[in-house]
């Protein structure tokens, strides 16, 4: 009986050792895989590749003929998007829609177009870009520059 028990104990020990060894192997493999991934994985590159940025010439930002449009929101004295730049081909129609959270007056400089801005209601001004140059679109009361219209 003692002999039988000893064999049983050995068997038991062998099973456990094998299981432990297998688990250890799995663990080692996992660690090795992680290290390999860390060492051989894709390298981080944070910047654009050639052809999409830092290229010497990427093409002129010339205005295309056709309607130019901007949508601007004023909230708590902040312009969104921040004061922009609207490229317009001479003779093209321009529409600018402004929504302000406080009453104000819109002014397109150069063209001298003015429009009231009631609080919370979008207002759209339309004009044809007959004059060339860069013209600021501002609010008179808050003295905010909303965008610049560059007519070429």
């Amino acid at each position: 009986m003692r002999r039988t028990l000893t064999l049983g104990a050995r068997l038991c020990l062998a099973v456990r050792l094998r299981l432990a060894a297998r688990l250890s192997q799995v663990a080692c493999l996992c660690v090795a895989a992680c290290l390999c991934l860390a060492a051989c994985g894709p390298q981080s590159t944070t910047h654009h590749r050639p052809g999409t940025a830092h290229d010497v010439v990427t093409g002129p930002a010339t205005p295309a003929p056709g309607q130019a449009h901007a949508e601007i929101t004023i909230t708590r004295g902040r312009v969104s998007p921040p004061p922009g730049w609207l490229e317009v081909a001479e003779g093209s129609p321009v529409t600018i829609t402004v929504t302000s959270d406080t009453p104000d007056e819109l002014h397109v400089h150069g063209y001298d177009i003015k429009a009231g801005l009631p609080a919370g209601k979008p207002v759209t001004v339309r004009f044809t870009a007959g004059l060339t140059g860069v013209f600021a679109v501002e609010t008179h009361r808050a003295k905010l520059v909303l965008t610049q219209v560059a007519v070429r």
């Binding site: 654009h48 999409t52 093409g59």
Partner: peptide
């Protein structure tokens, strides 16, 4: 949007193409 050439991305309309994580 940021795959386009810079002139076509719309930076002037509020687009920002972040270069950093």
């Amino acid at each position: 949007t940021c795959r386009k050439p810079p002139a076509e991305r719309g930076y002037e309309r509020g687009v920002v193409c972040p270069q950093v994580g």
